[in-house]
Design a protein around this nucleic acid. Structure first.
Length: 112
DNA sequence: AATGTGACCGCGA
DNA sequence: TTCGCGGCCACAT
């Protein structure tokens, strides 16, 4: 076989890993980009997670709205999506404080 | 191929 | 507490 079946991880595969982790976030809980990256062994590659979310198709089953930044705030580029994210989180019981921040101390997902 | 930007994070002032 | 800077990697042009 000329083609090696051992495809290098970079391509669409790592994104699947990210999506898998995000999909594991329980309802009513949130996780940070860095946290997800850390679960994949890429603690300093939080940005990659953000790009993965950005590349997420509209009809995806991945609960991308449960992913926030380390400050407990929404960091989306598009205000429309940001608003939608807040709405979805509130619908799951996540509470935003007056500054629009989430209490990570309470809602942070703790993987075992 | 090189450069710039990005749904970020951590630290220092 | 907030603001600024550097660092890490992937993607788009």
């Amino acid at each position: 076989m000329k083609k090696k079946f051992g495809i290098p991880s970079r391509s669409a595969d790592p994104y699947k890993q990210i999506y898998a982790v995000v999909h594991c976030i329980p309802k009513g809980r949130v996780a940070t980009y860095g946290q997800i990256a850390a679960l994949l062994g890429r603690e300093r590659h939080a940005r990659q997670v953000g790009h993965a979310m950005s590349a997420l198709p509209a009809g995806s089953t991945v609960p991308w709205h449960r992913v926030i930044n380390a400050k407990g705030e929404l960091s989306l580029r598009d205000p429309y999506h940001e608003s939608l994210q807040q709405k979805l989180l509130e619908a799951e019981g996540v509470v935003f404080d007056k500054n629009g921040r989430i209490s990570l101390h309470k809602f942070r997902w703790e993987p075992s």
